[in-house]
Amino acid sequence: MRRYAYYPGCSLERNAAAYDESFRAVAQVLGVELVEIDDWNCCGATEYFSLELLPAYALVARNLALIPPDLDQVVAPCSACYYNMYKTDKNMALYPELARAVNEALAAGHLHYEPGRVRSRHALEVMVEDFTPEEIAAHVRKPLRGLRLAAYYGCVTVRPAGHDDPEYPTRMEQLLQALGATVVDYTLRANCCGGHMTQLDADTAYGMIYYLLSNAARLEVDALVVACPMCQLNLDAYQGQVNSYFGSDFRIPILYFTQMMGLAFGIEPERLGFGQEIVSAERVLEKWRNPPPEEEPVERRPRREKTGLPMPEPLVAGRG
């Protein structure tokens, strides 16, 4: 059994409860034990780093310090939480003066964190790195046959820390394929949704969201699959705003990759937080319940003769 410390983060407590529920449900199927960090605090998102640097690091370091000594990995489903922990640990290791200052602050709460003790990982990273697509496929009870999906990673899920290609990641696609889905080539997969821009300048934010949605709509996907609560919020909750702003008519369900895993594992949608999305996922569930008949494998004629053209004999025997 694999054991990880678990940092849900504030979003997963309420707004992204669907992500928390589905992540826990699929973890159970895969035999993963998630040990929630006791009394964790908000990691500060990106806002703290805009105001004061040392308190921002100290805030994140408190959570790292609270991880029990027998655990050496922590998993976070929120991309911002994940990257904050990763960055704090890495910079503390890289800059001893920073580590000293952070630990001096932590000492005010009788805590200490030794950089390098805990490896911070994204929930998606764990699913695509610690399990092979074959291992995932072995748990599939109800394949996502006939569902056309686009994978959307957003930014800090893969950038700059990089457990996948920072420009053109592909491992969520592999995961969705292992679940039996049809995956489209969504070239905006690692573009940015604008993060908290909706709170700062709505016009700019809507433009960024529109770009992502219109591209997905052109690919005629049944759903856009995400790995971050902020991405989900921006694309799902603001889809209506974007529609009225641009006069568009997008109705693209925005679902977490863990919800798709759960469906494929045969878990009931109610246990995966379905119904919490603003843009209804009913059509996705409909297809999942009544998948199209399995296509007959088309018999293909070999394109050319097995034996190729004769190759020239090597000039010197024994050398090729």
Partner: peptide, 17 residues
């Protein structure tokens, strides 16, 4: 309270960070 104490100390330390 513990969190506030940590943040207070961090702000005091401030520095170039």
């Amino acid at each position: 309270r513990q969190l506030r104490a940590i943040l207070r100390r961090a702000k005091e330390l401030g520095g170039a960070w």
